[in-house]
Amino acid sequence: MQGMKEKSSGQATAGSGAAAPLGASAADGATRADDATRSGRRPAGMSRRQFVMAGAAGAVLVGAGGLGAFARDTAQAAYLRPPGAEDEAHLLARCDRCQRCVQACPYDLVQPRPLTWDFPAVGTPELIYKDGYCDFCMKCVEACPTGALSWDAPSAANIGVAKVVSDACVAWDWGGCTVCADRCPVEGAITLDDRGRPHVDEVLCDGCGLCEMVCPAPSLRAYDASTAEKGIYVVSRQSAAAAVPGALTSAELEELCRTRRTDAGTGTTAGAGAAGSREKGGSRE
């Protein structure tokens, strides 16, 4: 790039010595014509440097596109998206990263994706149930100007599915903790088995994230860094973690990254109909 620096005076013809006051456009036009003939095969009005820059930028865009497609392919990611997102491919093609859904969320759950190896997804919305849960207010869907989040997508009533982490969940080895089952707003979505361990009904669960938000495991297991932080996590229904039936271990959750996509991923979103029965779902059928 350094070599192309500031040669602009070189490509223009040397200014005629005479100062031509107001209306030197004839001389100006002649200069331009001369310039254009010298530019050879390039389209008129483009200097050599501009042509080189545009070509280089085009090459970089082609490279970035290829690398991005490769990154998407190897990451095989399925992030937990806001309600109304169809599948990963649709969201990524449709989202213009305008951050309106991020601004609209009253609970700061919708956050832009950070920059990772899966870099084409940077800036697209994902849900983080750290300090809140989704009550399906649908303000993010209302705010979306591109249709990346839409009312008629199956995920409008079904964001994802909660997965119990067997070695992080307190009820799993000590018993006694019933916080997630007590707080779950969907009747029957989290039930306790005969040993008092929570089980998620994968059809009824709509991924609102209240269980993940209230799970007390982080404070009860603060001494043990080997386990996942929470005893229950909501994952995308397209993720590989969602495809594993029942509870996961911390290692399995880590391996599946909470994000990796299953090939059968889109099929599982069909379970959306069941969650539609939930009253909170509101205006949708």
């Binding site: 490509q11 223009a12 545009a54």
Partner: peptide, 13 residues
């Protein structure tokens, strides 16, 4: 000289 004759223009192309 006329600065407008010597300036580089932005390029739509």
């Amino acid at each position: 000289g006329d600065p407008n004759a010597a300036r580089t223009r932005s390029s739509l192309a």
